[in-house]
Nucleic acid binder design. Structure first.
Length: 295
DNA sequence: TGCAGTGTTGCTTC
DNA sequence: CGAAGCAACACTGC
């Protein structure tokens, strides 16, 4: 789910609704949420954070890599990472005392089954809610700290991110397999399993090629494919192959344009290529690629 | 029915 | 130091 285009879709949605509002309450089903040490899983941390963010106006919402940043007045920022199965959902919710879960009042996409995994609910000053659902509870919600973003590579869709810079970043890991390196957030942010498969299919590069052996032409092809596919992902509102939803509970449409990801066994759709899409575990992730044209 | 597979990432191990 | 493996968790689908 959430790679750069999905996170950007969520952020774009939040940018339309959150600024100028403030949170009037925060609920969470402690101690079940959310991920590791300094997060909402810790009751003291939750209470402390709640006290800090309540009644402060949201100034803006931004994205850094796959991190969502909600900026409040007084220089306070809340970081939300959706990891595998997180969603931020905006709507009017109510707590069902019988079933002990939050439910959306609206009919429509927000009635989605993922509501039953809501673990955090922010009540907003317009009486609506921002709910965080997360089936696998890998997600992270915490106050932003300096070191959270320190290790991150450059933004691939930034206009200043050029081909020479792309080569320079990848060459930090000359011995790495190219698919793995593309997904490393310290090299470039935003690319995950789906988009890396699609980028390498379009560029015609085998996912297990060592970075040091990639030719200049191939570098250029990967760079172009990366910009093109991430933009396409944003344009289609993200990828809902699995459970990604935007803040209104609606699906993205990038999944209808996969050429490689989860296309195992299908004929390759590249013009006059006779290949078939293979699946292989590379670096612990399932990689999908054409048997012929990705060399 | 059981087990393999699922977007991420950070920690441990070699 | 870097690369690889695995754990965090819970569900879906074959």
């Amino acid at each position: 789910m959430p790679e750069l285009p999905e996170v950007q879709t969520t952020v774009s949605g939040l940018q339309k609704v959150l600024p100028k509002l403030h949170f009037t309450d925060v609920w969470s089903d402690l101690p079940s949420p959310i991920n590791t040490s300094q997060t909402f899983k810790n009751k003291n941390y939750f209470e402390k954070t709640k006290k800090l963010i309540l009644n402060k106006k949201v100034v803006s919402v931004s994205r850094r890599g796959k991190n969502i940043l909600i900026h409040f007045e007084k220089n306070l920022t809340l970081l939300v990472h959706m990891k595998m199965t997180g969603h931020l959902l905006y709507g009017t919710y109510f707590f069902d005392n019988q079933e002990k879960v939050w439910k959306a009042k609206e009919k429509g996409p927000l009635q989605d089954p993922y509501n039953r995994f809501i673990h955090v609910v922010f009540t907003l000053s317009n009486k609506k809610h921002l709910a965080f659902s997360d089936a696998r509870k890998f997600g992270k919600i915490a106050l932003l700290e300096e070191h959270d973003l320190a290790h991150l590579g450059p933004e691939p869709l930034d206009a200043h991110f050029t081909l020479p810079r792309f080569k320079e970043r990848l060459s930090k890991k000359p011995k790495g397999k190219v698919k793995t390196v593309l997904m490393e957030q310290s090299v470039i942010v935003g690319v995950g399993n789906i988009y890396s498969d699609e980028i390498l299919w379009l560029a015609g590069v085998h996912p297990e090629r060592k970075v040091a052996d990639i030719t200049a032409d191939e570098m250029k092809a990967m760079f172009t494919a990366m910009k093109q596919l991430l933009r396409k992902g944003v344009d289609f509102g993200g990828d809902s192959t699995s459970d990604y939803r935007n803040i209104h509970g609606e699906r993205g449409k990038f999944q209808y344009h996969h050429q490689a990801y989860q296309q195992t066994g299908k004929p390759c759709s590249k013009k006059s290529c006779r290949g078939v899409i293979l699946r292989k575990v590379i670096g612990g992730r399932s990689a999908h690629f054409c048997s012929i044209h990705q060399k």
